[in-house]
C-alpha cells in the first residue's frame, strides 16, 4: 500500500518537539516499512527550502539544546527512499518561487495534484 502524506501545516510544534511532528511520524513509519510519498503544500512548502536548523529557544536560564533541523529530517526521508514533492504554485504565491529547493525534491503545479492523488492507494491529509 502506497500512502501520500499531504503536509499542509508547518512550524506548528517545532519548538517543543525539536522536529516537525508529521515529518517525524513519517520517518518513524518509514522505519516500520511504510511506502510513503510526501506532498508539501501551503505553509509546509517552506520545508522544501530549509537551509539550516531552527533558532534555539531560551527562556530565563533554560536554553534549547537541539532545535529542529528540518533540512536534515527531509534529507533523511529522501535518503530512506521516500519521494518528496512540493507544490510550485504555493511557493510562488509566497514569493518563494525563485528559491532553490533541496536536492531530490520534485516540483509540481496545482493542476498535477489530481494525478498524484490518483497514483497512490490512500491520501492522508495532515
Amino acid at each position: 500500500m502506497k500512502v501520500l502524506q499531504v503536509i499542509e501545516q508547518a512550524f506548528r510544534a517545532t519548538g517543543e518537539e525539536q522536529d516537525d511532528t508529521i515529518v517525524w511520524l513519517s520517518r518513524s513509519m518509514r522505519g516500520a516499512g511504510a511506502d510513503l510519498h510526501i506532498l508539501l503544500t501551503s505553509h509546509a512548502v517552506s520545508y522544501a527550502l530549509a537551509k539550516a536548523g531552527s533558532p534555539a529557544l531560551s527562556f530565563g536560564d533554560w536554553r534549547q539544546a537541539h532545535p529542529a533541523d528540518i533540512r536534515n529530517d527531509i534529507r533523511e526521508l529522501l535518503a530512506s527512499g521516500v519521494e518528496i514533492t512540493v507544490v510550485q504554485d504555493d511557493l510562488e504565491e509566497r514569493g518563494l518561487g525563485a528559491k532553490q529547493c533541496l536536492q531530490g525534491i520534485r516540483q509540481i503545479c496545482r493542476d498535477e495534484i489530481a494525478t498524484l492523488y490518483d497514483s497512490v492507494d490512500q491520501v492522508w491529509q495532515w
Partner: peptide, 18 residues
Amino acid sequence: ARAPHHYALAQSLDRAGN
C-alpha cells in the same frame, strides 16, 4: 484562505475523471 484551494482540488479530481 486554503478553502478555495480545496474546492479547486475537488474540481481538478473531477476533471481527471474521478
